[in-house]
């Protein structure tokens, strides 16, 4: 599993950090930063939840 973020779309709602704090972070302006582009399998559920909750559609998942 590989995560991609489209910074262009991010509005800084912070849902991803709440769902998967080990994978996503926010910069000082709230814009998403990716801590682990290839999260371990154990994080898959949390990452999926983050993807579903992102209000601006800034997250993408690519399955291996």
């Amino acid at each position: 599993m590989r995560v991609r973020v489209e910074v262009e779309r991010c509005i800084g709602a912070g849902q991803c950090v709440l769902s998967a704090p080990g994978v996503f972070d926010q910069d000082d302006d709230g814009v998403v930063t990716l801590l682990r582009p290839e999260p371990p399998a154990g994080e898959a559920g949390a990452v999926r939840e983050a993807l579903l909750l992102c209000p601006s559609g800034a997250l993408r998942l690519e399955q291996d």
Binding site: V7, E8, C10, D27, D29, V31
Partner: peptide
Amino acid sequence: ARRRGRAG
């Protein structure tokens, strides 16, 4: 603009 940073 600053918040968008490197987003193009």
